[in-house]
């Protein structure tokens, strides 16, 4: 990383600090009602207290678990189904119209149905997250394997590669950029749906904690929970960037 890039990041972090300081000043001066907008100091102490004495760490772990398991389910199903539909015209003919009907369904609308079918437990949470997060992955994989460079398929044909090898060595690798883009999008969706289902289902995740804190007008706790959700999202995006950089080295080579 170049020196100027680091300098800009430092400057940008400084800007963030200035914003936080201004917020602190405003809170101290009671520009907003402290009931609505707690100052950064109170949010920090709520975070600290919740993490060391309260159950914030356990709730964060629960939420992370929901998100990751749901996301993983969605990834496996999405990539597998996307590859099958992308590679087999027959499977595409049978399955694609049904999926096109299901896809625009807003994932949150499935929550009441999932609650009715599965109750308020873990399986409902995971089912809703997986259902919502599966689409970007499915569409990405499908698009990826379908847009393989035709010349590469000719190369494979000329080399007499069997279909299984064409899928493994040509179709799936060339779909990797699309699959990664799908992973990124579905991570966002998974985090949103994790928060929502936890709000709806109660339980011991962050979503329920935030909603309860909101009902009790404990705004510092709400902000603390929201901050952790944001950090989870950011950590996920960063991990994906690292994965992307590793998997797409060949693209950055030029």
């Amino acid at each position: 990383m170049s020196v100027s890039r680091l300098a800009w990041i430092a400057a940008s972090a400084l800007v963030f600090c200035v914003i936080v300081a201004a917020w602190q000043q405003a809170a101290d001066a009671r520009v907003f009602s402290p009931v609505f907008f707690p100052g950064p100091d109170r949010i920090w102490s709520a975070l600290h207290r919740g993490w060391t004495q309260g159950d914030l760490a356990a709730r964060t772990a629960t939420t992370l678990g929901h998100m990751l398991v749901g996301w993983l389910l969605a990834s496996v199903v999405g990539v597998a189904l996307g590859a099958v539909i992308g590679l087999s015209p027959l499977a595409s003919a049978y399955l694609k119209p049904t999926l096109e009907l299901l896809r625009p369904l807003p994932a949150s609308a499935t929550i009441p149905v999932a609650i009715a079918l599965l109750g308020l437990g873990e399986s409902m949470v995971l089912a809703v997250i997986a259902f919502g997060a599966v689409w970007p992955m499915l569409v990405g994989t499908m698009h990826g394997v379908q847009s393989v460079e035709p010349r590469l398929l000719e190369v494979a044909h000329a080399l007499g590669m069997p279909r299984r090898r064409v899928i493994r060595d040509i179709a799936l690798p060339s779909a990797i950029p699309d699959i990664l883009a799908g992973l990124r999008l579905s991570l966002t969706v998974a985090l949103i749906l994790t928060a929502v289902t936890e709000m709806m289902a109660g339980g011991d995740g962050l979503g329920a904690a935030i909603l309860d804190a909101g009902r009790l007008m404990r705004s510092a706790n709400v902000f603390a929970g929201v901050a952790i959700l944001g950090l989870i999202g950011m950590a996920g995006a960063m991990l994906l960037s690292i994965l992307e950089a590793r998997c797409l080295r060949w693209r950055l080579a030029s």
Binding site: R151, E154, V155, W250
Partner: peptide, 10 residues
């Protein structure tokens, strides 16, 4: 079109 006929990820 060598650009298309080589596997870019290898």
């Amino acid at each position: 079109d060598y650009g298309k006929a080589l596997l870019p990820w290898r």
